[in-house]
Design a protein around this nucleic acid. Structure first.
Length: 705
RNA sequence: GCCGGGGUGGCGAAAUUGGUGAUACGCGGCCGACUUAAAAUCGGCUGUCCCCGAUGUGGGGCGUGCGGGUUCGAAUCCCGCCCCCGGCACCA
């Protein structure tokens, strides 16, 4: 059964007229159009960069698609390659993506994951001098206060300076061999390996104390982060310490706990704690660690040897894919003009027909030679099309805009319709989208707003993360084969029972376990609803009065709040169950019909089929799904009496049904009259009386006079 | 290690702002009714220990991961700890 037929059988309310598909030219034409806008505005650019490469899928991957060093799709170990690729410059938006979090109402864990992912670090960029080559090499550090403890210097193997440093020296062979070896390692290997590296024979000068420290090349320093070079402070950085231990490099302690005067264990690693101060750091000794950070950074800045700097874990979004199924990147490579955008009127650039779709290390589109070979739109000379396609996350970064105007063939969407519908008030999706789709879409909105295409900078005002259904302790998924096919249950018990059960099984944001027995319970509930409703339908109509009508109004209030505000579908259904239990106790009671109709209304969104049928059988000619949501009448919510809880010393001793109208003094008087309460007062003196209106009275009795 | 979320019956869970007996609603279990029987359905019971002047519409103690605290009152707030789930992690 197709996915669409499955959705229809479940009775989902979907406006199929707005269906769009990212692989159809009518849609990807506009993805290409948007790419060109990004390109013109400088947001899309092509550059050579070390990229994550999946050897199995034969394609590059975005950083976000690498999980623990493995390919998100196939699980293969991801490798490093240097390739010319297209990027969206979203690191430029790192601070905005952080700051604008205050504009949106999202679950804290998603914001935390995004914050984590962006990974902003505040620190300083400091210049170390290599005298023999007469150059300065910048390092990024978050701990300028430890600079007097820098005992060596490390460059990433990919650092462009490495070959120059060793050229013509006795270390050249060894260093270049090391660089080659690490290049062949996968990311996972690099991380798992014990730290290794090689000395270059060169020295750098520490700008703080003019100490000459050896320059090493080691693959625990990453080219993609900071400047690809570090000052190593083994006493205060665990990784540097590990490396120093292995190669017997000196360890110099420069930060100690506030009360200590010297390092308790010289040459050891000391973890960062609060309340530290500097030692052996020239004029900065005895400053606290935060003071030292600022003072040293300022001092170096004054002398032109540093500046404050911010670094991010976030990398630019790599969007090139060497795959067939994606939107072709609409540019042309001309030997004379360079990269030339496909003119807007030539869009869409259609995916060519090819025989072999399998990935083979370069784009399968390269095989379509007639398609590849074009004339340059600028100079008319011979040129080649870009053969890579876009990451499909580009499509999902704006699909919701297209939903507002799905058939527009003049523009991706009409601004007026966007202003009417968007931003999305309530977005619902799984937590797996936290750092991919949701971050990309936020970035897209910011660029589109700057391009004047939309009027907002955050696309999804509120976000709710739904949970998922586990089966025998593992997430249900087709690849694991532990899937409950809804079709079987729908065939056997109907879509309503399945829908209700999924809502009832637990909180909507939780991970829940599928139990066949639970579904049986829901089937029982629906049968009961059916019986009771028909029984009531056969009785003469009564007024919407009496205890049942009151209960019905209370249920309306509860369900409306549960669904509308709390996303608590499980308790909403429980409330309707309570109402039905009450009706079933005496279906002939006054107000039973009103109560049944209320139950049907409240269940309509969850169980649309059975409620519609019963609605008709109750004699209605209109359609329940078109009827307005029921309103709780405030007058019907008011009770004349309530159950007063009487406590003595905080322990419940009696419950009394009393009129709502009683004053606090009267409530206290009633409480004291209770024989059960008196038994516990036991003649003791009442020292304090607490009254919570409409709830309880607490009498505090002295233990002893 | 850092960040986020959790821990409540036999099970899924509820208790929304510190104020209704902790455990709604459902599942499972036990007992009963109906039936030749079963299914279906309906009714009752179902945290734990204890008391009885006595089997009741009775009474009491304990109980929300563990130990403390605040409060008239704590599943809810605070401090310390344990465990589980998720994210990040050679990011300087």
């Amino acid at each position: 059964m197709s996915i669409r037929a499955q959705m229809q059988r479940m009775g989902w309310s979907i406006e199929w007229d707005r269906e769009i598909a990212s692989h159809e030219p009518e849609m990807y034409r506009w993805t290409q159009w948007l790419f060109l806008k990004f390109f013109e505005a400088g947001h899309a650019h092509r550059r050579a960069a070390p990229v994550k490469w999946c050897p199995n899928d034969q394609t590059v991957l975005a950083n976000e698609q690498v999980i623990d060093g493995h390919c998100e799709r196939c699980g293969a170990l991801v490798e490093s390659k240097i390739l010319e690729q297209w990027f969206f410059r979203y690191t430029a938006y790192a601070d905005e993506l952080l700051d604008d979090m205050k504009l949106i109402d999202w679950p804290e864990r998603v914001l935390a994951m995004q914050r984590n992912w962006i990974g902003r670090s505040d620190g300083a960029e400091l210049l170390f001098r290599v005298d023999e080559l007469d150059i300065d090499v910048p390092v990024f550090t978050t701990r300028p206060d430890t600079i007097f403890g820098a005992t060596f210097f490390v460059l990433a193997p990919e650092h462009p300076l490495v070959p120059k440093l060793v050229e013509g020296t006795p270390h050249e062979q060894e260093v270049l061999e090391y660089v080659r070896r690490t290049a062949a390692r996968s990311f996972a290997e690099r991380e798992e390996n014990e730290k290794d590296g090689v000395f270059t024979g060169r020295f750098a000068t520490n700008p703080a104390n003019e100490a000459r420290i050896p320059i090493w090349v080691a693959d625990y320093v990453l080219m993609e982060y900071g400047s690809g070079a570090i000052m190593a402070v083994p006493a205060h950085d665990e990784r540097d310490f590990e490396f120093a231990q292995r190669y017997d490099l000196p360890v110099k302690t420069v930060v100690v706990p506030a009360e200590a005067n010297e390092a308790s264990a010289p040459g050891a690693f000391s973890a960062h704690t609060e309340n530290e101060r500097l030692i052996d750091s020239g004029q900065f000794s005895s400053l606290s660690s935060p003071e030292g950070k600022k003072a040293i950074a300022d001092w170096l800045a004054e002398r032109g040897r540093g500046r404050s700097a911010v670094s991010y874990r976030l990398r630019d979004w790599l969007i090139s894919r060497q795959r067939y199924w994606g939107t072709p990147i609409p540019v042309i490579h001309c030997p004379a003009c360079g990269i030339v955008a496909v003119p807007e009127e030539d869009l869409p650039v259609l995916l060519p027909e090819i025989d072999d779709y399998t990935p083979k290390g370069k784009s399968p589109l390269e095989a379509a030679q007639d398609w590849i070979r074009v004339t340059c739109p600028k100079c008319g000379g011979r040129a080649r099309r870009e053969a890579d396609t876009m990451d499909t996350f580009v499509d999902s970064s704006w699909y919701f805009l297209r939903y507002c105007d799905p058939h527009n063939d003049q523009a991706p969407f009409d601004r007026g319709l966007i202003d009417y519908w968007l931003p999305v008030d309530q977005y619902i999706g799984g937590i797996e989208h936290a750092v991919m789709h949701l971050l990309y879409a936020r970035y897209f909105a910011k660029v589109l707003e700057e391009l004047g295409l939309v009027g907002f900078r955050e696309p999804f005002t509120r976000l709710f993360n739904h949970g998922w259904v586990d089966m025998g302790g593992a997430k249900m998924s087709k690849s694991k084969g532990n899937v409950v096919s809804p079709d079987d249950f729908v065939r056997e018990h109907g879509a309503d029972a399945v829908r209700l059960y999924i809502l009832f099984i637990g909180p909507a944001d939780a991970r829940v376990d599928w139990q066949d027995d639970g579904l049986e319970g829901m089937v029982r509930f629906l049968r009961r609803l059916w019986r009771v409703a028909l029984e009531v339908a056969a009785l003469p109509d009564t007024l919407a009065e009496g205890p049942l009508a009151h209960k019905a109004h209370e249920t309306i209030a509860k369900v409306t709040d549960d669904i509308g505000r709390r996303f608590a579908f499980n308790t909403a259904i429980a409330a309707v169950m309570e109402l039905l239990n009450e009706i079933a106790r005496d279906p002939k009671a006054t107000g039973a019909r009103f109560a049944v109709e209320t139950a049907l209304s409240l269940l309509q969104p969850s169980a649309p089929h059975i409620t519609e049928e019963l609605w008709e059988r109750l004699g209605h000619e209109d359609r329940l799904w078109k009827s307005p949501w029921p309103q709780a009448d405030p007058a019907m919510l008011v009770r004349e009496t309530f159950e007063l809880v009487v406590q003595v010393n905080g322990r419940v001793r009696d419950r009394l049904e009393v009129p709502m109208s009683l004053s606090e003094d009267e409530l206290i008087a009633r409480a004291k009259e209770s024989p059960k309460v008196q038994a516990h007062l036991d003649g003791g003196e009442i020292r304090q009386t607490i009254v919570v209106p409409r709830k309880l009275v607490n009498l505090v009795v002295g233990l002893d006079g």
